[in-house]
């Protein structure tokens, strides 16, 4: 177990920059998510840390030791692959024991640790099965046990839950978190599922076009996104942008919006969809700002509801609990309102 740090790592494939001077610290024992749309470089970064891809520039340290020149097999990592990559010719126990055998820990020790690991993932009873005799969830558990049984310095997970259906995925998220806490291993995982990233991790790093655009605790990143991209990528957000005139933001159509204190220099703001309210009557109150909008569609989704509205030709989304919504027509003029300090200044990118 060790901390991992990535510093100014760059990797180009032909003409495309897969990673562009990426830096991020992964302190000891934490659970970290690398998040981003497909093609953002998150998997490339994981594979650079693993050693399958060699960076053009920059430093990678595991436990303080530079590993750029250390081949995969000597980096002492544990990795779980998207398709699990269980060896089809070996039983569950042999799969889990593979790394122990390579490390020559001795037969008795090997047996004990296989049993322990399988117990931890609740697969002890299936130790003699072959991978093709297991269900998706069971394979996932075996792959996980195989990755951590050697007590690697860091556990790397490549989209570990993407092959499972939704119900199983939620179970496995809880399970994964439990096991990670129990063995206390530094864990870095790649996902394109933002909800999964927010649920599981202590810190997330969001990548876009090969660049690390924001890193931090999930709550901080969610509440204070740096840029339009992150605001819209994590959850739902609406964006206001325009010219600053006399302490107000003049948006398209000439309407003015109040700017929160301490953000006077900015001209682009993001607000969470759930931080906006929708009503038929014009709302009142000093610290709330309001704007007229056209309701386009109201989408029912169980506990939550989404309203699509248009403000001067620009679409916005309002998310609220179904039971908190007022009675609304199917479409027509409505009012949007929000507390001014919910507006967060963001970079327009």
């Amino acid at each position: 177990m060790a901390e991992v740090s990535v510093e100014n790592v760059t990797k180009t494939f032909g003409a495309t920059k897969a990673l562009d001077s990426v830096s991020m610290d992964f302190p000891n024992g934490g659970f970290f998510a690398l998040l981003g749309p497909s093609g953002s470089g998150k998997t490339t970064l994981l594979r650079v840390i693993a050693g399958f891809i060699l960076a053009d520039n920059g430093h990678i340290r595991i436990g303080g030791e530079p590993v750029e020149r250390v081949p995969v097999e000597r980096r002492d990592i544990g990795m779980m692959f998207q398709n699990y990559a269980l060896f089809p010719n070996m039983t569950v126990a042999d799969n889990v024991g593979f790394g122990l055998r390579v490390r020559k820990v001795g037969a008795a020790e090997e047996k004990r640790r296989i049993a322990e690991a399988l117990e931890l993932v609740q697969m002890g009873s299936l130790r003699d099965r072959k991978p093709h005799e297991l269900s998706g969830g069971q394979r996932q558990r075996v792959a996980l046990a195989r990755a951590f049984v050697t007590n690697p310095r860091v556990l790397l997970l490549d989209e570990p839950l993407s092959a499972l259906d939704k119900a199983l995925r939620v179970d496995m998220q809880i399970e994964l978190k439990r096991i990670q806490r129990e063995i206390g291993i530094t864990t870095i995982f790649v996902t394109h599922d933002q909800e999964e990233a927010l649920t599981l991790s202590d810190k997330i790093g969001i990548l876009r076009n090969g660049r690390m655009v924001q890193a931090g605790a999930p709550r901080d990143v969610y509440n204070a996104p740096d840029s339009v991209f992150i605001a819209e990528f994590l959850g739902d957000a609406n964006i206001f942008s325009g010219q600053v005139e006399g302490g107000a933001l003049r948006i398209a159509g000439g309407r003015a919006i109040r700017i929160p204190k301490g953000a006077e220099g900015a001209n682009t703001f993001a607000i969470r969809s759930e931080d906006m309210a929708i009503s038929l009557e014009e709302p009142t109150g000093d610290d709330t700002d309001r704007i007229r909008a056209d309701l386009v569609q109201r989408v029912f989704a169980g506990a939550m509801a989404t309203c699509i509205v248009e403000v001067e030709g620009r679409r916005m989304k309002i998310v609220a609990r179904e039971r908190d919504l007022p009675a609304l027509p199917d479409e027509g003029p409505v009012w949007l309102s929000w507390e001014t300090d919910r507006l967060k200044p963001v970079k327009d990118e």
């Binding site: 693993a50 399958f52 081949p71 995969v72 097999e73 000597r74 002492d76 990592i77 544990g78 990795m79 692959f81 998207q82 398709n83 990559a85 269980l86 060896f87 089809p88 593979f98 790394g99 390579v102 490390r103 195989r146 990755a147 050697t150 790397l156």
Partner: peptide, 12 residues
Amino acid sequence: TLEEAARSLGAG
């Protein structure tokens, strides 16, 4: 990825 998995487990 089977080869990669084996390498990640320390196999030369």
